[in-house]
Design a protein around this nucleic acid. Structure first.
Lengths: 236, 236
DNA sequence: TAGATTGTTAATCGATTAACAATC
DNA sequence: TAGATTGTTAATCGATTAACAATC
């Protein structure tokens, strides 16, 4: 009976995202030699509420010790287990362009549940080659290989216009979860897990906020009369 | 008086992220030859509510024509203007590893407000070289160059342990907005814009959902009694 | 005109934040 | 023991969803 997690509905994405943050933070603190930590400390270092940290940690079934806190090592273990990061899944990556290449070369995700075992592309110049020991096949082979190797995770790093067809091939190949870097809303069966990395959306937030900031600071020349009036209003 | 935007508080990140999605979707539809589109169509294609699309579009000051909809071209223009994507800012990137390299090579962000004009690293093997015509300097030069070129945007693609110091250098160099790919919560003055790309968080969501799914499907051998009982409960 | 579409206002929902009780 | 910490329950807030009114 090592599984004391009580049944709860699906966990919110936000909570899962924070848990990943906690792990990275805790690994760093552990490397510094810290052995015990309180939710209050985690919260203040990461800029969130301590009650939120506790709620998130509770999702993993963790129980802390009043007055003491949590053992850093146990926390890391428990979160990693909860996120399934102690269980590495093989993954296929389709689209060996700039980002695809970077993800294949980068081995850092292997401590986060994913190991890329093959790349796929339609570029003849790439097919048959290896990148860091990982073979690149023609995308034609995707469905068959995914089925045979029982691959569960697919990564899409193709140009936007090919993302949908690749997603469909992945589904046909029995892939259950797609990590999608293309700026496209994929249409897949409802039971397929899709996690989008929206770089352009992230950039949109950055860009628009910078614009607002520059305008507020008066750094932009073409300020119109209405805005100037508003400025004056504020100063009163 | 081309600026009919009324004053509203800061726009929510979610809304900005969706606006970026709309642009990409609309660009694709425009390429297909579509000239007019309704909020209802956008919504159903992207899987969101039409009232939400309208609210988001309203943020940009756009006004549609009842019974007709919006001109695709105008929509794109308005959203791009709102996101400040028609105004390209020069950016510095620090950390020319796998991801840094990919971002430097990839020119796609130049239609989304960002142009990387220099890379920085501490690796002697990289310094002095060019990647796609973009020079790589020693990180020592960052502060001075950022100040002199009045760079406003910094991109952090260093290992986690160096992200904080790089962020501090950026702030000292007068950089106002940081696009951070390191899994670290940066501590910077409150007026500095930080936008994190949380790849590990994204992976955490994927990983945990896949785990839940596999468990639900019974694909994992070690199913315990409690879970089996729950399964039986459901089937009634 | 009728109807498709727009835009806005109200209701619901979920996540965040705050307040409180429990414990080593 | 007193107090720091945990864990939980209640209040607030904001975003999503639904319902309605306006218009070419």
């Amino acid at each position: 009976m090592n599984d004391t997690e009580k049944f709860t509905g699906p966990i919110s994405d936000k909570a899962l995202e924070r848990l990943a943050q906690y792990v990275h933070y805790l690994r760093r603190r552990e490397a510094e030699g810290l052995e015990v930590i309180s939710a209050v400390t985690i919260a203040s270092d990461l800029g969130v509420y301590h009650t939120q940290v506790r709620k998130d940690l509770a999702l993993t079934g963790l129980v802390g010790v009043p007055k003491v806190g949590h053992k850093v090592k146990d926390l890391i273990k428990a979160i990693e287990h909860f996120l399934n990061w102690d269980n590495v899944h093989d993954a296929f990556l389709v689209g060996v362009g700039n980002i695809g290449n970077a993800l294949i070369k980068y081995r850092g995700f292997e401590t986060s549940g994913i190991k890329i075992v093959a790349g796929f592309d339609v570029d003849k110049a790439l097919i048959g080659k290896e990148i860091n020991g990982i073979p690149i096949y023609h995308t034609d082979k995707l469905i068959d290989l995914a089925n045979r190797l029982k691959i569960k995770i697919g990564i899409i790093t193709t140009p936007a216009e090919h993302a949908q067809e690749v997603a469909e091939m992945m589904v046909e190949g029995g892939i259950l979860a797609i990590w999608n870097f293309a700026p496209v809303v994929l249409k897949v069966p409802p039971d397929i897990i899709v996690q989008n990395v929206e770089l352009y959306s992230s950039l949109a937030v950055l860009s628009q906020k910078l614009k607002s900031k520059l305008e507020a600071d008066g750094d932009i020349p073409q300020i119109n009369e209405e805005e100037q009036k508003e400025e004056e209003e504020k100063q009163k």
